[in-house]
Design a binder for these strands. Structure first.
Lengths: 290, 290
DNA sequence: CGGCTTCCATGAGCACCGCTCATGCAAGCG
DNA sequence: CGCTTGCATGAGCGGTGCTCATGGAAGCCG
């Protein structure tokens, strides 16, 4: 009987996040003493020191970090059990599903998906968080148990972190976005943004017989778009970003050799079996089919 | 407090598999009565009937089937927590960590750190990007999510951008770099470079009884170094830049009043809780201790 | 240096939870 | 009908996990 009770899990998470026994206790509505006892008990059960106690509170050790992340995962599953089982009985999908997505997916893809989802499952409450699609991206959110499903562009396949499952949704083309008024958009500077994963478009550029004269780095893809609308330059952007181009932006297909990227989702095996996540995945796939 | 205890989860799994309260109890080493109580409690907590009781035992309902599946997942995670956390120390950290550093840190400090990191965590892939330590510097890279951790010199403390955490690594002395052949290096022009944060050395200069006759601004600290080697001038440079001085450069300590700068790192609170970043920070600290 | 504050640790005491035990009840079966 | 085989239920009890009170270590500050 060496596994931790839900309360102990909650304590671990709270302490890891608050970096203090006292604050964690306050947050959970229990005394500092109870937290201390609980942590001590958890450490004994797990056989590792989970927090370094010091003058300024408690910092998670590596073991503590792992444990608290795992604890978040477990608590999430425990939390979903109620709606999950009730849903099975009543044939409804209820509860919460937390989605992490990068900005353009959230703007271009999710509204439709969430509309359908809301229509089909009134009791399901999706939560969307925006994550920059760089670094660990949305997969990191899923790994840390901050999200149930992440929308992501295809990572180098070697990089799919263990413990996650990844599936492709569809392939997405890049298009040319230029000011509608521009006579020869190719003479305009190219607007690029940091999130634009180089490998997708860079390779394509090397095969082109024209190159932009200037390149302007911009913070964000939405800024790129409004700059295009203002006539400042042109850009090669994924279809999703251009789903609803603003006034004054003309979008041109780049032909069959256009650069593409793959869109997909990540989640955990356990979450992939839950009703809300399954319903969401179904709608993500359906959205593309239409 | 509506989530199930590990014991209740075990009971659900056992009953679902044994299709009998009595046998489930026997398997778990408890009485049939306890099983009955536990199942009843679970059903109340989840708000659904999990088993159909009948003459020939208990059959899981749809809800019960789903609950017991979920329970198996959770128990598996709980079970793995022990080994997972115990092994945290020896376990290899995997993933990617993106480091932004200014040139001399990348050249003088990182090789050693990355060597150690590679030895300890073969599955961890560090990526280094060189950033000029002016303007927002490496903190900007972290802010823009282009890097997970930035090596930086101490900013004016008021300037730590919110959302970032900054920590000092160590204090670094400035040294005098002069051509080895120079009879009196103090007569040579002072080579300065734009990245050289004025405040560190300017104050020191005001306290000196000698002043350089001329001052030459150079693009970059590496250029400064090769110009010193060529006998063009002398320079006051941080220790890191002079870690491996080229032929013909003699390095002199400036004594206890030497100007210093503080080296540190910036990252975000969320990233600071991830294992790759923590492993990196640990090695950064260890590198100095040696 | 000594009081003060701010952390966490620890022991005693108590309440409640979850177990067992004993028993009840329903349904099939000779 | 008893008898068997299943689950349900209430009483009672022990251990777990909480609070309360207190202790100890470590910075901080005049």
């Amino acid at each position: 009987m060496s596994d931790l009770s839900p309360n102990e899990l909650r304590v671990l998470v709270a302490v890891a996040e608050e970096q203090s026994f006292t604050r964690a206790g306050a947050r959970l509505g229990m005394t500092q003493s109870a937290v201390s006892h609980a942590v001590r008990g958890s450490e004994r059960k797990l056989g590792a020191v989970l927090f370094e106690r010091g003058r300024q509170g408690a910092r998670a050790t590596d073991a503590g970090l792992r444990a608290s992340t795992q604890a978040r995962h477990i608590l999430r599953l425990l939390d979903s059990m109620g709606s999950e089982t009730r849903g099975a009985a009543e044939r409804t999908v209820t509860g919460t599903v937390r989605i992490a997505a990068f900005r353009s997916a959230a703007a271009g893809l999710l509204p439709e998906v969430l509309d359908r989802l809301a229509a089909l499952h009134p009791g399901l409450h999706p939560q969307v968080s925006i994550v920059r699609d760089v670094g660990r991206g949305s997969a990191g959110e899923v790994l840390d148990a901050n999200a149930d499903l992440g929308i992501t562009t295809v990572p180098p396949t070697s990089t799919v972190p263990d413990g996650l499952i990844f599936n492709r949704l569809y392939e997405e083309r890049y298009l040319l976005a230029a000011p509608a008024k521009a006579a020869d958009p190719r003479r305009l500077p190219l607007l690029d943004w940091s999130e634009n994963c180089s490998s997708y478009t860079r390779r394509w550029w090397t095969e082109q017989d024209w190159l932009p004269e200037r390149r302007i780095m911009v913070e964000d893809d939405s800024v790129v778009l409004s700059m295009v609308a203002a006539g400042i330059g042109m850009a090669v952007m994924p279809h999703l970003t251009l789903a609803a181009p603003p006034e004054g932006v003309s979008v041109t297909d780049l032909g069959s050799t256009a650069p593409t990227r793959h869109l997909g989702y990540v989640t955990t095996p356990a979450l992939a079996r839950t009703l809300p996540v399954r319903a969401l995945i179904r709608e993500l796939r359906a959205a593309h089919a239409r």
